[in-house]
Computed example of a mutant assay.
Amino acid sequence: MSNKAIEITSLTKMYDNGRGISDLNLEVDQGDIFGFLGPNGAGKTTAMKIMTGLMKPDLGDVKIYGYSILEHYVEAMEHVGCMIETAESYPYLTAYDNLKMFARYYPHVDEQRVNECLEMTGLSRYKNEKSRRFSLGMKQRLGLAAAMLSKPKLLILDEPLNGLDVEGMLDMRKLIKRLAEEEGTTFFISSHLIHDVELTCTKVGVIYGGRLVNVDKTQHILENYASLENYYVSEVDRNGRV
């Protein structure tokens, strides 16, 4: 298994409206918490959909732990958990029953693991409530619990803090850091919440106009800029935003 969790090579996907991603090249090491920043329409979700096999690229490839998502999809996704765009669930099932349903896809996931994921995401006390009654933040927690079920080595999360209150954001930040430090879980996270990315991610990539304009370690960025927000604005301005 490659020590590179993700290797993106010349990835291109263009839409009729001229948006998309163009010639994206990126490597993410095992154990990184990678933050993917960019304005709306920059191509974040498109890239993540291709990474998880939900969309085919026009050109290029993505390798996950050395396996191409185009040629060896099953092997590539074997150690991946993901939540893209919205956290889907069965609205008339309880949180517990939703996870039990998802657990059927993983032969090694038992009832104990289901309860662990409910506990880690703060849903234990709501385990018997139907998800149709959940707030957006609670649905996000349930989506994250589902993504974590199989103890994946890599979690690909699109706007995971969307809809969470302040307490929920703090809980998720702590959980992400704990999984990275204690279990070596790699994270690829897109977010528009720059402050949370600054406090959570070890490395940051900025995408603008469908192109990856820079990648750097968070620590190095903060040695040169007052905040990640200042760095982000500088990168976006430097690449032509008015």
Results as ranks from 00 to 15, higher is better:
Leu26Cys: 13
Leu26Lys: 04
Leu26Gly: 13
Leu26Asn: 08
Glu27Leu: 10
Glu27Val: 15
Glu27Asn: 15
Val28Cys: 15
Val28Glu: 12
Val28Arg: 12
Asp29Asn: 12
Asp29Tyr: 04
Asp29Thr: 02
Asp29Trp: 00
Gln30Arg: 14
Gln30Ser: 14
Gln30Phe: 01
Gln30Asn: 07
Gly31Tyr: 05
Asp32Pro: 08
Asp32Gly: 02
Asp32Met: 13
Asp32Gln: 09
Ile33Lys: 03
Ile33Gly: 08
Ile33Val: 15
Phe34Ser: 07
Gly35Ser: 13
Gly35Lys: 04
Phe36Leu: 10
Phe36Cys: 07
Phe36Lys: 08
Leu37Arg: 11
Gly38Met: 11
Pro39Asn: 12
Asn40Leu: 12
Gly41Tyr: 04
Gly41Thr: 13
Gly41Gln: 08
Gly41Leu: 10
Gly41Glu: 09
Ala42Tyr: 11
Ala42Leu: 10
Ala42His: 00
Ala42Trp: 04
Gly43Lys: 04
Lys44Asn: 12
Lys44Phe: 06
Lys44Thr: 15
Thr45Arg: 04
Thr46Gln: 11
Met48Ile: 12
Met48Glu: 05
Met48Asp: 10
Met48Gln: 02
Lys49Val: 08
Lys49His: 05
Lys49Pro: 02
Ile50Glu: 08
Ile50Lys: 00
Met51Pro: 09
Met51Phe: 01
Thr52Glu: 10
Thr52Phe: 05
Thr52Cys: 15
Gly53Val: 01
Leu54Asn: 02
Leu54Met: 11
Met55Pro: 00
Met55His: 00
Lys56Gln: 07
Lys56Asn: 12
Pro57Leu: 02
Leu59Ile: 01
